[in-house]
């Protein structure tokens, strides 16, 4: 392990020159991102991290790719090992593990975005808090989120408010 440095990835310049440059690695990562080839992204991110430990973009790519290929446990163990703030990723992983209270904790303090709202709504749904879950979708109804109506209907029906489905669908 190289000594911890507060410097950004540039510290890697001091290491012996890698056979492939970090820029080339990121170019490859981008290509695989565009094709949804998540396992390749994990491998290439590891290559970046071997020469630039702690590189924020590489870590973010690795965690996102692990989540995308359903390796939730692996993603969470990476998140827990690094000092970076990956609260949204963490909350999502905990949600997938059904650790709903912890997931909610991890969402707290994050700026409210459509991503955090969608996740919060899904957590509430699993907690059985249907009304709160649907309330969030109401706030999002003008955000043009694809397939939102699926969850809205699920929430309304589960909340015993099937009669509101039609009105809500018209509003979406």
């Amino acid at each position: 392990m190289p000594p911890k440095s507060k410097e950004k990835p540039k510290s890697a310049a001091a290491a012996p020159p890698p056979s492939i440059s970090i820029e080339d690695l990121f170019t490859s990562i981008k290509r695989h991102v565009d094709k949804d080839e998540f396992e390749q992204i994990v491998k290439l991110s590891d290559q970046v991290l071997s020469v630039a430990p702690g590189d924020e973009d590489a870590l973010r790519c690795k965690v996102a790719a692990l989540i995308k290929c359903d390796k939730i446990d692996d993603a969470l163990s990476v998140i827990r090992k690094v000092p970076n703030d990956f609260s949204y990723f963490k909350a999502y992983c905990l949600y997938r593990q059904n650790k709903l209270k912890e997931a909610m904790e991890s969402l707290k303090g994050l700026d409210e975005t459509s991503a955090t709202m969608l996740l919060e709504s899904q957590i509430l749904f699993r907690m059985g808090k249907m009304d709160a879950s649907v309330d969030i979708y109401r706030k999002l109804q003008n955000s043009k989120i694809d397939a939102l109506e699926i969850n809205v209907v699920a929430g309304l029906v589960s909340a015993g408010k099937s009669s509101e489905v039609k009105g809500m669908m018209d509003a979406l």
């Binding site: 990562i29 991102v33 996102a64 459509s114 991503a115 996740l119 694809d146 209907v153 929430g155």
Partner: peptide, 20 residues
């Protein structure tokens, strides 16, 4: 009722252009 995991779609990769 079916619930779709819309939060999954919000798991995004960082923009990488500046690293290329």
């Amino acid at each position: 009722p079916i619930v779709r995991d819309l939060a999954y779609d919000s798991i995004d990769f960082p923009t990488l252009e500046h690293r290329m």
